[in-house]
Simulated assay, not measured.
Amino acid sequence: MESKAGKKRRLILDTAKQIILDSDFSSLTLDAVAKKANISKGGLLYHFPNKESLIKGLAQYIFDEFTFLFYKYAENDMNETGKWTRALIETTKFDLEHNGELNVGILAISFLEPEIAKDISESYMTILKKLEDDKINPLTATIIRHTLDGIYYSQLLNVAPLKKEKTDEVFQHLLKMTKSEEKK
């Protein structure tokens, strides 16, 4: 059971995330979060003493959500062969559709905060280790992973991003790749 403080912290982070998604990253202020979450500014400052700590907490929170969703997709996949790779595909697709704008800001923060970048990198490495023994050709899993990274970065950095229809086709093709190969 989540503690009262844990619930309040999650409320603050969810509210901060929603402010960014509804407006943009520059709209994120401590006052705006406190007001929208319907909590006192002192209550907010107890959990996040400044905007920098809020943004750091938000970066970790978003990646924790990504990781949770990754494991949830894998858990619901009844086909053991390629399930971790499919989970990464599905999680990436969901994340891009629901958190794309938010991730631009988080990506920028991670460049400025080596500690955040290190934590995210270590968490991502844990995810990637699951792909290594996914009962499909490891080269296929690597190609899929790098394709997902490319889609992610081209969309987040707005560098010749694919149109939604083409992105959906690519995701479907990647999913098929996980089902058509066994580990060689």
Rank of each mutant, 00 (worst) to 15 (best):
E2A: 10
E2P: 07
S3D: 08
G6D: 09
G6M: 08
G6F: 02
K7C: 07
K8L: 09
R9F: 01
R10C: 03
L11K: 05
L11F: 02
L11E: 03
L13A: 00
D14A: 01
K17C: 05
K17R: 11
Q18D: 08
I19R: 00
S23F: 15
F25T: 15
S27K: 08
T29A: 09
T29H: 11
A32S: 06
A32I: 01
A34E: 02
K36E: 06
A37S: 05
A37D: 05
A37T: 03
N38D: 14
S40L: 08
G42P: 01
L44H: 02
F48T: 01
F48Y: 12
P49H: 07
K51R: 15
E52Y: 06
L54C: 06
I55P: 03
G57D: 02
L58G: 03
A59N: 06
Q60K: 14
Q60L: 15
I62C: 15
F63H: 14
D64S: 13
E65Q: 15
F66V: 07
T67P: 10
F68V: 07
F68C: 05
F68D: 11
Y71W: 12
Y71L: 07
Y71V: 06
K72P: 00
Y73D: 04
E75Q: 04
E75G: 01
E75W: 03
D77F: 04
D77G: 07
M78K: 14
N79K: 15
T85C: 03
T85F: 07
T85G: 04
A87R: 00
A87G: 04
L88G: 04
L88R: 05
I89G: 06
K93I: 09
D95M: 14
N99Q: 10
G100S: 15
E101R: 13
I106L: 13
I106R: 09
L107P: 11
F111R: 13
F111H: 11
F111K: 10
F111W: 14
L112T: 05
P114H: 14
A117M: 15
A117D: 15
D119R: 13
D119N: 13
I120L: 10
S121L: 05
S123W: 01
T126I: 13
I127M: 01
K130H: 07
K130Q: 11
E132I: 08
D133L: 11
D133W: 01
D134P: 02
K135I: 00
I136N: 09
N137D: 12
N137W: 02
L139S: 11
A141M: 04
T142N: 12
T142P: 07
I143N: 07
I144H: 05
R145I: 04
H146P: 00
T147M: 05
T147F: 04
T147E: 01
L148W: 00
D149M: 12
Y152A: 11
Y152H: 09
S154K: 10
Q155E: 06
L156K: 04
P161S: 03
P161N: 12
L162Y: 14
K163M: 09
K163T: 07
K163W: 07
K163I: 06
K166N: 12
K166T: 15
E169F: 13
H173V: 13
L174D: 03
L174V: 03
L175P: 04
L175T: 08
L175I: 11
K176T: 12
E181D: 10
K183N: 14
K184Q: 12
